Each structure stands twice: as structure tokens, then as C-alpha cells.
Amino acid sequence: MAILQEILVWTQGIPAWQSDAISRLLAKQTLTPQDYEDLYALLKLAHGIPDPKNRQPQPLTADQIPAKVKATTHIELRAIKNLLNVNAIAENQQLAVGSAGMTVIYGDNGSGKSGYSRVLKRACRARDQSEPIHPNANLPGAKAGNAQASFDITIDGAVKEVTWHQGKEAPPELSSFAIFDAHCARAYLDSEDDFSYVPYGLEVFETLAKVCQQLKNSVEQEHKQSAVDLAVFAPLHGETASAS
């Protein structure tokens, strides 16, 4: 993931609101109207215009992207287990992953497939993390804590257990796993239905340019609305008492 590491270094030399935009773009495929409102407020804040909501930029950080791993390091996922506060998934359960071939996970609706998937995406710092992890609705609110899960992995053949806690930095070892689903897909179709592939991370420059253009339009529109109409002063020009 050298591209994302270079992007992280690059964001340290740009305005904080732009780094915030990069952070959002790497976390979701499409920015919401609220995202644009936030970024517009942050842009104005960077130029000395206070924000009534006191929003502050949240620049891209190292824990949001895959950690550096040596190319020679071999990491395998063996099991996802001990999920807590994830939907109604039972505690002290283990979902084994085969070390070779393909592991197929199936079950009825509501059996927990999506719950495991969402945990895996958060723990592995997947590109898309827009789907929320819901707590167990059967528990009182006071008992529904943050989600967590444990993972059995092997690093160059050595077995290791790592734990992920929602709201805390994900274990760097897990960021070696690439998550691919309908939300994380980086494939695009152009106007002629040609299938093209954009390397993970590089598309952020194009989308950032589009964000900047939309914010520019917002600035121009606000400036136009705030401009003073000098035409009303036209009768005062020339040889009048006001003009002299």
C-alpha cells in the first residue's frame, strides 16, 4: 500500500481542510451534502471566517490507512472470534477461515453474515466503512458497549491473536488484508461501458479536484448573493449636491 503511504505524507503539506476531504474520500465513495457543508465551513475557517458550529478539520491520520508491511512478510487470517456488541451475534463463537482454497460463509437472513463482514472491514481498515455496526438490540442501552472482536492470524507461520476495539486504532497486522465487496470496489465503467481499473488511492486526486470545484462554485454563489448593487447609486453621479 505504498500509494496510500505517499498520499498520507502529501496531505501533511496541504491545508487541513483538504486533508479532511481526503480522509472523507478514502472512507466513502460519495460525499454527502453534509460533507460538503462541513468542508465549506472548514474552507472558510481556514481564511479567518468563524464557524458558528465550531467545526474543526480532521486531517488524514496513519491509523486510517493500511500499515506498512514488508513485501516478504506472509500473513494469513485463520479465524474471527469472540464478537461482542455486534448485532445479536452470540458471544464466544468462532468463524474459521481456511488456510487454502476458498472459505464460503452462508446462512439465513439475520444469521450474522453482514455483522462479521462489517467487523472485518473496520478491523482491516477497508476502503468503505459506511455501513454501521449496530449493537445487540436485545440488550439494554447501558449494557450495549462498543463492538470488539478477536482474530487468529499467522505471520510467517507463527500464530498470533489480535483484538480489535471499535473506536480505537485497528491492529496494524490486519491492514494487510484487502477487503473487496460492492462498496469497496475500485472498478469503474466509462461512458462507452469500457471496464477500467483505478489503483487503490489514486482516484482520490480526481475526486478532490471535483470537491474543490464544487466548493469554488459555492464561494462564487455566496459572493454573488452578498455583492452590493451599485446601480442604485447611479442617480447620485454627476453634478448633484451628493456628488460634490
Rank of each mutant, 00 (worst) to 15 (best):
I3T: 06
I3D: 06
L4G: 00
Q5K: 06
Q5S: 05
Q5L: 05
E6I: 04
I7A: 01
L8C: 04
V9G: 01
W10D: 13
W10Y: 13
Q12K: 14
Q12S: 11
G13P: 01
A16D: 11
Q18C: 06
D20Y: 04
D20H: 15
A21W: 00
I22P: 03
R24D: 09
K28F: 00
T30H: 12
L31N: 07
T32D: 11
P33F: 03
Q34R: 10
Q34P: 03
D38H: 07
L39G: 12
A46I: 01
A46M: 03
H47N: 10
H47T: 08
K53G: 02
Q56P: 00
P57W: 00
P57R: 08
Q58F: 03
A62F: 00
D63H: 11
Q64N: 08
I65G: 01
K68F: 06
T73Q: 10
T73M: 07
H74A: 04
I75E: 05
E76V: 03
K81Y: 10
K81E: 13
N85L: 01
V86N: 03
V86S: 04
E91S: 12
Q93M: 08
Q94R: 14
L95S: 05
V97C: 08
G98W: 00
S111R: 12
G112A: 09
G112M: 12
S114W: 11
Y116Q: 04
L120F: 14
K121A: 13
C124Q: 02
C124T: 12
R127F: 15
S130V: 08
S130W: 07
E131N: 04
P132H: 08
I133Y: 02
P135E: 04
N136P: 04
G145D: 01
G145H: 00
N146F: 02
Q148V: 00
A149N: 04
D152Y: 02
T154H: 02
I155M: 10
D156S: 13
D156Y: 05
D156Q: 07
G157A: 10
K160G: 03
E161Y: 01
T163K: 07
W164E: 09
H165W: 15
Q166A: 14
Q166E: 15
G167D: 11
P172N: 09
P172L: 07
E173Y: 06
E173Q: 15
E173P: 13
L174F: 11
L174W: 14
S176L: 01
S176W: 04
S176C: 11
F177H: 06
I179P: 00
D181K: 02
H183S: 12
C184F: 04
C184M: 01
A185E: 12
A185K: 03
R186H: 14
A187H: 14
E192G: 06
E192L: 07
D193Q: 14
D194F: 12
S196T: 11
V198Y: 15
Y200E: 09
E206Q: 13
T207E: 15
L208W: 05
L208Q: 08
K210F: 05
C212R: 07
Q213F: 09
N217P: 00
V219T: 02
A227G: 01
V228K: 11
V228M: 11
L230S: 05
V232L: 11
V232P: 02
V232C: 05
P235V: 10
H237K: 13
A241Q: 08
S242W: 12
